[in-house]
């Protein structure tokens, strides 16, 4: 599948989905006017791609500054998807990047990470 690169806007994040390398990243702020319109196609393609993986390694990076409740639901679906393919025998590495002084994003990362058991989850500050 062709790589999808979407530039960030004021309300939507930067997306970089490299299907060939199994490397995926979402970065920035996420409160699009229509969550279904922004994430719908992306998630369908991702789901289709991930469901065909067998014994492969997937790297997913989240670097978010702010997201609304609907985007939070999208993230939960993404985490579910990643956990499912990890349970199926793929190696899934999820990295949650946040700014060191952003307590909110740190806390949310911890909460999302709790749902992952088969997938590897790491939290890192953007400053390294």
């Amino acid at each position: 599948m062709e790589t999808i690169i979407i530039k960030a806007t004021e309300r939507s994040p930067e997306v970089n989905f490299d299907f060939d390398a199994n490397t995926f990243a979402i970065k920035g702020e996420s409160y699009p006017e229509d969550v279904t319109e922004f994430y719908g196609d992306l998630l369908l393609k991702l789901e289709l791609h991930l469901s065909n993986l067998n014994g492969e390694t997937v790297n997913f990076t989240f670097e978010l500054i702010y997201f609304n409740s609907s985007s939070a639901k999208v993230l939960m679906s993404l985490f579910d998807m990643l956990e499912e393919i990890a349970e199926e025998g793929n190696t899934v590495n999820v990295v949650w990047l946040y700014e060191s002084d952003d307590d909110n994003m740190e806390e949310l990362g911890e909460e999302f990470g709790e749902d992952l058991e088969a997938a590897n989850f790491k939290m890192k500050t953007t400053e390294g």
């Binding site: 279904t36 719908g40 196609d41 998630l43 369908l44 639901k73 679906s77 579910d80």
Partner: peptide
């Protein structure tokens, strides 16, 4: 196939 935010539920 269309995207549903609450597909699972």
């Amino acid at each position: 196939m269309s995207f549903d935010l609450f597909k699972k539920e």
